[in-house]
């Protein structure tokens, strides 16, 4: 039995005049500790799929199972979600922000607090506890958001283009940091992105999505050599360039098949 199993998930958005199918027949299985990427043009339903996996949205049909049980019936939340922006609460201090998940889950005890502050230290932002988000830079805030997400000890991490709003240098540094942090906790993660390089550098497996409706078009496994490198070093490896070319061509083929786009 795989850790995460998505079975024949389809979703349709209804408005008064239209019924737009955002996702159609998505099925995939993920083993524990793997890093997946969903890559595709905007409007291919990647974010919709993440919301469904997170249990925030009920799919029109199909099921999402985590450890064999439907996600919406889970006793306690086991999903961590990171968004494009940090969405730290500006009126809370960093300390209040990172302990928020624990407080809501009623797991705010001495041990979990200590773990969270240790995480903050590991991520290099010790001493910011009493500051407000506004006093920190964009990259720092996104790191705090990572701490907030990990503090609740989710089993599955969903990353919805978390680096897209950052400048390139910060983005590269954060990719390395997130990758190393997730590896050390052996967390399962799904990254949604439209950045080919990011998908290759960070993940074990890449799923290419086509639009209208969103489907899995192709599954590409990232070679072992690249997986074992940090994202930054992976970008410099010769294998990276050749895989980039492959993915690029696949995306171009995909575009040809859907001339409406």
């Amino acid at each position: 039995m795989s850790f995460l199993s998505i079975q024949h998930v389809s979703h349709t958005y209804f408005t008064k005049k239209t019924a737009k199918t955002a996702l159609s027949g998505i099925s995939l299985d993920v083993e524990e500790g793997r890093f997946l990427s969903f890559l595709g043009p905007s409007g291919c339903g990647k974010t919709t799929l993440l919301s469904i996996i997170a249990g925030l949205l009920e799919p029109s049909s199909g099921e999402v199972l985590v450890e064999g049980r439907p996600i919406r019936e889970a006793q306690e939340p086991m999903i961590g979600y990171m968004l494009q922006q940090d969405y730290l609460f500006p009126w809370k201090t960093i300390e209040e922000n990172i302990l928020l998940g624990l407080r809501i889950l009623k797991k705010d005890n001495e041990l979990s607090r200590r773990k969270t502050f240790k995480l903050l230290k590991e991520i290099g932002l010790e001493g910011t506890e009493k500051q407000y988000p506004k006093q920190l830079s964009g990259g720092m805030k996104q790191r705090i958001a990572l701490v907030r997400t990990l503090a609740a000890e989710p089993k599955l991490l969903l990353l919805d283009e978390p680096f897209s709003a950052l400048d390139f240098q910060t983005k590269l540094k954060l990719e390395d940091l997130v990758s190393a942090t997730l590896k050390s906790f052996s967390k399962t993660a799904i990254l949604v992105t439209h950045d080919i390089g990011e998908a290759i550098a960070m993940s074990d497996t890449i799923f290419l999505f086509s639009t209208n409706p969103g489907r899995i078009y192709k599954q590409i496994d990232v070679p072992e050599v690249l997986r074992n490198l940090t994202p930054f070093n992976a970008r410099a490896h010769p294998e990276y360039s050749s895989l980039f070319q492959t993915v690029w061509k696949e995306l171009e083929n995909l575009e040809k098949q859907t001339p409406s786009y």
């Binding site: 925030l56 922006q85 969405y87 009126w91």
Partner: peptide, 29 residues
């Protein structure tokens, strides 16, 4: 209020009351 704040809270399993107290009300001060 930006619905993404609610999304953050809901991933922690927050109830509607918690969403109101933690995000909606302070954001509207």
């Amino acid at each position: 209020v930006d619905p993404n704040y609610i999304k953050v809270l809901k991933t922690f399993g927050a109830s509607r009351y918690v969403c109101f107290k933690e995000a909606i009300l302070p954001a509207s001060f």
